[in-house]
Structure formats: structure tokens, C-alpha cells
């Protein structure tokens, strides 16, 4: 490890000294044209964040709705949960994105509905559904980790199923659910890069477009990775803050 730390900078230096033609100027914010490029790339941030946040919100609600039948005492109700989770989890994101974007409008049309799907909603629907299978499993594990006695006590003081969930189980489970759920949000942010292939103007799409005009893939994709890195680091800092907060009022 220590060796690597010493050699890595040497390798970079060696690279610089070779006669590779570096083109960092394309994204040099000190020059007017570089600044225009950088602004063009960073402006994709809004779309990436917006898609990710909306998809995450839908996934968090959908995941809970999928998780609840998975906790039923009745077998056939549990099967609904299993089928959804296994099916959705098995579909790779990219094919699902194609199916939703190109296929779903045809399904709608055959039903006499005229619902166009633009890249923005196509990406959100795909990310949300794909992620919901994972959030459902997170919810299920979190809820199951709350002792059965809590449900029983809630029942004996007259609470119905939804009241038991709302006032007794979820407030306790949320402490264990939130950190992995927030972690899942990082996945959504990264997976949102796939939205570029259906033409969504987010970070990756913009990088691709700039590469095509500037022919500088190394420099532009390096900046792209840096953009995701910063985004994810900010989210992780938020997650850690959240964990500390949840842990601090932990008791009993």
C-alpha cells in the first residue's frame, strides 16, 4: 500500500513527461471557451439531482407498499411481495429503461391511452421501480427487526394494523431503515447516468455531447467523474449527519 502511494505520483509525473498531448484547456475555467464548457457540463447537475430525488421519493413510498405484504402472516399475500421483488430485481436497469421509454407508450396506446413518456419521466419511472425492489427489502428487514412483542402490545391496546405501523413499528424501525435507505439514494444518483442514453440532458449526456464536439474524452470524463464524486460525497456527509442524529436520541 505504502509502495503504491509512492509510485502513483511518479506514474503521473512520468505520464506528463511523455509526449502525450494533454488537453486540459477544454475544461480550464480560466479561459473563456473552457469556462463555457465547464458551465455546460455542470448545468447537468440540476437534472441529475432532480431525477434522483423524485425517483428516490417514489421508490421510498413504493418500497413500503411492496414491503408490507411481505410481512403478512398469509402466504399468498407474501407471494405478492416475493414476485415483485424477485422480478424487478432481476431486470438490469438499461433494458428496463429501454422498455419503459420505447415500449411503455406502445402498451398505453394499445389500451387507447395517449400518454407520451419523455426522457425525464422515463428515467424517473425506471429508476424508481428498479430501486423499489431494494427499498422494499430494506423496509422488510427493518420492520422485522422490531420485536414481535411490540406488535402484540399495540394490538392489546386496541390499535389496528395501520395504527400499529404508524405509531409503534415504523417510528422504531426508521432508525434502522434510514441509513441503508440513504445509501440506496447514492445508487440512484449513479444509476441516473443511464438516463443519458434516452437523451436526458443530465451530467453524463452533456459530457458525451461535449466529447463529440471537442474530441477530449479523457479530460471531459475526468471532470464528469469528479462531478459525481462531489455529489456523492455531499450525500454521504448528509447520511452520516443523519445517522448521528438518529443515534443520538437512541434509547431503550
Amino acid at each position: 500500500m505504502r509502495l503504491f502511494l509512492i509510485f502513483a505520483p511518479l506514474l503521473v509525473l512520468a505520464g506528463c513527461a511523455s509526449n502525450t498531448n494533454w488537453g486540459w484547456y477544454v475544461i480550464n475555467p480560466m479561459t473563456p471557451s473552457g469556462w463555457i464548457n465547464v458551465r455546460f457540463l455542470i448545468n447537468g447537475m440540476g437534472a441529475t439531482i432532480l431525477i434522483s430525488v423524485i425517483a428516490a421519493v417514489i421508490s421510498i413510498i413504493l418500497g413500503l407498499l411492496v414491503a408490507l405484504p411481505g410481512l403478512s402472516k398469509r402466504r399468498w399475500v407474501r407471494i405478492i411481495n416475493r414476485v415483485y421483488v424477485e422480478f424487478v430485481r432481476a431486470i438490469p436497469l438499461l433494458p428496463m429503461l429501454f422498455w419503459v421509454f420505447y415500449g411503455l407508450p406502445i402498451v398505453f396506446k394499445s389500451m387507447g391511452l395517449n400518454i407520451p413518456i419523455d426522457p425525464f419521466w422515463g428515467a424517473i419511472i425506471t429508476l424508481a421501480i428498479s430501486d423499489s425492489a431494494f427499498t422494499a427489502e430494506i423496509y422488510r428487514a427493518g420492520i422485522q427487526s422490531i420485536a414481535r412483542g411490540q406488535t402484540e402490545a399495540a394490538q392489546t391496546v386496541g390499535l389496528n394494523y395501520f395504527q400499529t405501523m404508524r405509531y409503534v413499528i415504523l417510528p422504531q424501525a426508521i432508525r434502522r431503515i434510514l441509513p441503508p435507505l440513504a445509501n440506496q439514494f447514492i445508487y440512484i444518483v449513479k444509476m441516473s447516468a443511464f438516463a443519458s442514453v434516452i437523451g436526458m440532458q443530465e451530467l453524463t449526456r452533456r459530457a458525451n455531447e461535449l466529447v463529440v464536439t471537442e474530441y477530449r474524452p479523457l479530460e471531459i470524463y475526468s471532470l464528469l467523474i469528479l462531478e459525481y464524486l462531489i455529489l456523492v460525497l455531499v450525500i454521504s456527509a448528509g447520511v452520516r449527519w443523519l445517522e448521528r442524529r438518529m443515534g443520538s436520541d437512541e434509547r431503550g
Partner: peptide, 23 residues
């Protein structure tokens, strides 16, 4: 119950008022 099964995230008073208020 043997294990009390109080609601750990609520105060003692809230443990007692939850059922009467919600149910």
C-alpha cells in the same frame, strides 16, 4: 406480558395515552 413490551420510543405517558387516543 412477561417482557413488558412497552413502546421504547415513547414516554411513559405516551405509552399510556396511545391506545385511548388512537383506538
Amino acid at each position: 406480558f412477561q417482557q413488558f413490551n412497552l413502546f421504547p420510543h415513547l414516554s411513559v405517558l405516551q405509552n399510556l395515552t396511545l391506545g385511548p387516543m388512537k383506538a
